[in-house]
Structure formats: structure tokens, C-alpha cells
Amino acid sequence: MAFGTSIDPAATARPAATSKTGVAAKASATPEMAKAEEEAKAADATSRAARAAADFESFLKLLTTQLRNQDPLQPLESTEFVAQLASFAAVEQQIGTNTRLDQLVQSLSGNALDRAASYLDRSVEVAGGKVAFDGETPVAVTYDPGATAVAAAAEVRDAKGATVATFAVPATAGTQTAEWDGLIGGQPAEPGIYEIVVRAARPEGEVETVATRTVSRVSSVSLEGGEPRLRLDTGAEVALGDILSLS
């Protein structure tokens, strides 16, 4: 609860109608209220806990200023004072709640990062055709050309997107494998990141790209926005929810 909604400045300045002392109290409280509002605005750039703490401090300043400057002949009514103390307790409770929520979020984030760390150096299957070629070992992707495919071929593209190799692949419906032997024009390709794209031809003569999957190694993990991210040896970053299988 923000302090501005727990105390009505017009109500706290009620003695001003009958006493010079009350007028002085209102005049002295006004700068305090303005300062409290400025402090609350500045706190908006911080966390929720910090904003609540700023409101809490402003509430205290306003309450003590009001008590210090009230008209002794017409002090604040007990019922109104009790209501303000209740607001004071609500603000304090909000600070404690926000603090506990922040601690819970940090705990959950830590658990998620621990879980992601268990993927390090493991092989995961993700959507897409990016592969990390070591210069020797053939690399592959899996795909399903669909029931209407009459032919299929794979294109190997380098890091710049240029096609460096093509080869025929099975066009039978169901999960198939397109394996690249790592050769370009009969010569071994340079190690690096490549992409294998599979295209299937349909009876009507239409050629379309089909979805592929590839297996990559998890090289590192990180936490971004409270969510764990996995960096693969292909350079791609994926969320835990993007993992199709783990081996």
C-alpha cells in the first residue's frame, strides 16, 4: 500500500480551521509530503522491495511530522490515529511479503540453473539443421519428407549461407537420416558450423523445405531473465523447453 492512499493530507490538517498552530502544522507538513513523493518516484527505478521500503520510510516521516505539529488543543482523534497505525502495519507487511517473494524467485532460478548445469557436455536433439563439423566425422540431420514426396535432396550451407554441397536423400515417409560425409567437391571441408537443409519434391512439381532435427553437444549454460539457456557447440542458444531428447 502506498502511503498516499493510507493518509489523507486534508484530514490530517483538520486543526488548521480553528488554530494558528494547526496552520503552522499544515505548512510544515507540506514540504515533508513533497519530499516523500520525490523519494517514492526515485524508488520506482529499483526493485519492488526497494520501492516498498521507500514508501514505508515516507509513511513514517509523514506520520511523525503530523504528530509533532498537531494542535495540542485539538489532537488527532484516536480512531483516525488507529486507522493510520493499521496502514503502517500493512505497509510493513507488504515489504516482508515482497522480500520473501524475491527470495523465492531467486531460489527457483537457482534450482533451474542447477538443472540446466546437468546438461553440460550432454548431447541434445533440437529442431533445425545446424551442425558442428570437426573436419573428419560425418554429420547428419533427421527429417520426415511426408507421404507425398517423390524425391528429396539435402543442401549443405556454410556459415555465410552459400550452398557448398548437395546430395540425394531418401524420400520415403517417416523419420529419415540425411548424413553429410564432410566432402566438398571430393575434398574434406574445413571444420566449422554448417547447416543441412532438406528439400522434398511433390507430385505437382512443387519443392518445399521440410523440418529437420539435429543432435548437438551442450557447451555451456547461462541464466537470462531468470530462465536457463543452453549454448550448443553449433553456437545456437536454446531454452530447456526446446530440447526434444537427451542422450
Rank of each mutant, 00 (worst) to 15 (best):
I184V: 12
P138N: 03
V150I: 11
D55W: 02
N98D: 14
D121T: 13
T137G: 08
Q93K: 13
T212E: 06
F3E: 00
A201S: 05
G241I: 03
A239T: 05
Q106I: 07
I193E: 02
V198P: 01
V238E: 01
V238A: 02
G185K: 06
D8L: 08
R51K: 10
A36T: 03
F59P: 00
S245C: 08
G192D: 04
E38C: 09
A171F: 01
F56P: 01
E206Y: 10
Q70F: 13
A90K: 14
A83D: 13
E227Q: 14
G22Y: 05
D233Q: 07
T12V: 14
D181L: 06
P31R: 04
G96P: 02
E32R: 11
E77D: 15
A29W: 07
T142Q: 07
E204T: 10
I184D: 05
E237V: 05
V150A: 03
E195V: 09
K20E: 14
A90S: 13
V197Q: 04
F88N: 03
S220M: 05
T175Q: 15
D55I: 03
I193L: 03
R48D: 09
L232W: 01
G225F: 02
S123A: 09
I196Y: 01
V141S: 03
T30K: 13
L101C: 11
A50S: 07
E37F: 14
A13V: 09
T148G: 10
G110I: 03
M33Q: 12
E32W: 06
S245Y: 05
R48M: 12
K160V: 15
A42I: 00
T212A: 08
Y194V: 02
T30I: 09
G135Y: 06
A201D: 01
P31M: 06
K160C: 11
E57Y: 12
Q70A: 14
Q176D: 06
K26C: 11
Q106Y: 11
A112G: 12
S219Q: 12
A10D: 11
E155H: 09
E206W: 08
V169E: 00
P170H: 11
A239M: 09
R217Q: 12
P9V: 05
E57A: 11
K26L: 11
S247Y: 06
V164E: 03
T142F: 08
V141T: 05
A211Y: 04
E80M: 10
G4C: 14
V82C: 04
I243H: 04
F3D: 00
V82H: 08
Q84H: 14
L76V: 13
V124D: 01
E57V: 13
T175H: 14
F81S: 09
E37Y: 15
T18M: 10
A152Y: 00
V139M: 04
A86E: 11
R51D: 00
V139F: 03
E80W: 07
